[in-house]
Every structure is written in C-alpha cells, then in structure tokens.
Amino acid sequence: MSDTIKLQYTVSTDDFTRAGEASGDVKRKLKKMGSAPEVVRKVAIAMYEGEINMVIHANGGTIDVEITPEEILMVLQDSGPGIADVEKAMQAGYSTAPDRVRALGFGAGMGLPNMKQYSDEMEIETTIGVGTKVTMKVFQT
C-alpha cells in the first residue's frame, strides 16, 4: 500500500462563499488521519489563505496536496496576473486587493505573510502575465 495520498482541488473563480472548501476538506482529512492538532491548524490556515488569494487575485486555479507520514505538501497554481513585487507582497499589511474585495473584509495584506508564518517551507514562482505557483510544506512532526 502507498504511503502517500494525493488530492486535487479546483478553486473556483471569484466565489468567496466557496473559498475554504478545499482547505476545509484537507483539514477534516488530516484530523481523520490523526495528524497532530497543531499540524492540522497550520495546514488549514496556510491553505485557506492561499485559496482566498487565488480567488481575489487570480480567477481561481488548482491546488494539489500530497500527504505522507512525514509532511503535507501543497502546490497552489494559478494563471493569474503574477506578483510584480514578491518582497513587497510578503510584507504584512501590503495588498493590491481591489476595493470591492476589501469591502468584504478581505485584502488586509496578511495572505502571503500568514502562509509564510504557518507553513514550514514556502516557495513562490511567479511570472507576470503567466501565473503564480506557491509551494508550501508543513511537517507532520
């Protein structure tokens, strides 16, 4: 039997009410697999922030998740506008979210900083006009 479980999620376009479905599903699965509560929490928050980002900035995308006894690997890929200044985007409070999104309570500029904080490893590959790929890892122990 395999030691890995692979999951794939599609993040829908511009639908805030559905953002969180993917991270919620992973959260429930991790609990059923007996991951430590703290690990579940980190994955749930990091992935939810990623999901919201994809809805706000990139017209959705896909998330691939791989769970092994050692780690949870999340790959978030979109074909959005790309991030012009990654360093700036990583600063707490910096946001390029449009007003209509802020009106809903999002766009506080905590998305990427939270993803960084709650994941153990994070890597961003982005090309303007092509899209962004964020890879996050959370270790099981």
Binding site: S2, D3, I5, K32, I67, P69, Q140
Partner: peptide
C-alpha cells in the same frame, strides 16, 4: 499515520 494514509 501510515495506516491512516493507506485507509484514507
């Protein structure tokens, strides 16, 4: 964990 992953 290993068993749980296989079952999941």
């Amino acid at each position: 964990m290993k068993d749980s992953i296989a079952r999941m």
